[in-house]
């Protein structure tokens, strides 16, 4: 993954979902994983699984870890906590916000869309697959639970090891009834592949064009993230979560029409979560880096890629076959005369 430079906007990931859905498990995974100096904003330190040996210092509202991560309390409000992080002498590399069990994570995420020193990376909402259908029946709570899922980039039907098929399907149906375009993936213990969390890593070296080089759905990718998998022994670790995501690779030597390409981006299916890589445009010598997440995207000048277009995507199990996806982008390529 690329490290943001010291002055660039900080990527923000927001994790939402009701109590018991697995938010803290996911936060702990990211903290334990290391590799990125996170500032983690939480409502309650209590559940954060900080290895005491890692703690460098702690006061009422902050815990500084030896690996450079820092945990901050949002008890005095998100604004104050965020301002503290942004004004700190040593800025983190990324911000992770664990929303409260009743907050709408999207409302929080919006700050990263509007504040210039922040960049929204991902909004993940977790659902307790076994109990969701019952929880939404609660008149005090149901609307809140639905609201916090409705605009998330990715919804994890979590705790699948504890949920029967029927309760998981019921939960999925309830979510889709409210948010038909929701990206839903089934997980156990909030275990997610690295490319889902941090974006796929297209290789600039790849130069064989012309063929769709998509891995088969379910194929293992090298960045598959095992580092944090401590809860189960190697024997007990199945790869169910891999089935929850599909990949797509698009490689083409042609330059696109920029307008056509941008239009094609708008037409990508909602099951696609991320798309990243380089592309070229007609009448433009420069290379461009595309970073597309859940419909939000940026194109930045970047000449470190190949001469053509090389994009890698990841989506939920509902991601259409690669050929179908290829066709969506190929439509944006100018018709080149056949050989």
């Amino acid at each position: 993954m690329s490290t943001p430079d010291a002055t660039g906007p900080l990527p923000v990931t927001v994790i939402g979902g009701f109590l018991g859905a697995g938010k803290t498990t996911l936060v702990n995974r990211l903290l334990a994983r290391g590799g990125r100096r996170y500032a983690v904003l939480v409502n309650d330190f209590g559940a954060i699984n900080v290895d005491a040996k890692l703690v460098q210092s702690r006061d009422g509202s902050k815990i500084q870890l030896e690996n450079g991560c820092i945990c901050c309390s949002m008890a005095d409000g998100l604004s104050l906590a965020l301002a503290d992080v942004l004004d700190a002498s040593r800025r983190p590399e990324a911000i992770l916000i664990e929303a409260s069990g009743v907050a709408d994570p999207w409302k929080i995420a919006e700050v990263a869309l509007v504040e210039r020193s922040l960049r929204l990376e991902l909004v993940v909402a977790l659902v307790d697959a076994a109990n969701f259908a019952r929880q939404v029946e609660d008149p005090l709570l149901g609307d809140t639970l639905v609201r916090q899922l409705s605009r998330a980039d990715l919804i994890l039907l979590n705790k699948m090891d504890q949920a029967g098929r029927s309760s998981a399907d019921r939960a999925r149906a309830l979510i889709l009834a409210e948010a038909p375009d929701a990206r839903i993936a089934e997980t156990v213990a909030a275990e997610l592949p690295a490319d889902v969390l941090f974006g796929p890593t297209p290789s600039p070296e790849r130069r064989e064009y012309g063929v769709t080089a998509s891995p088969r759905p379910g194929e293992h990718l090298p960045q598959h993230d095992h580092a944090e998998n401590t809860s189960q022994g190697p024997a007990g670790h199945d790869h169910r979560h891999e089935d929850a995501f599909r990949r797509w690779t698009f490689v083409s030597p042609t330059a696109f029409s920029r307008a056509g390409f941008e239009a094609a981006l708008g037409g990508l299916p909602s099951s696609l979560l991320r798309l990243k890589g380089w592309c070229r445009f007609e009448g433009d010598e420069a290379g461009w880096l595309l970073q597309w997440v859940a419909g939000r995207w940026t194109l930045d000048r970047d000449d470190s890629g190949p001469v053509g277009t090389a994009l890698v995507g990841v989506g939920t199990a509902a991601l259409p076959a690669s050929g179908e996806l290829d066709a969506l982008l190929a439509a944006a390529a100018p018709r080149t005369p056949g050989p």
Binding site: S79, A83, K107, V111, L113, V114, E115, R116
Partner: peptide, 12 residues
């Protein structure tokens, strides 16, 4: 309106 936009403006 609301925290996100107000945060960005007051900070700027």
């Amino acid at each position: 309106q609301e925290m996100a936009a107000m945060f960005a403006a007051t900070r700027a």
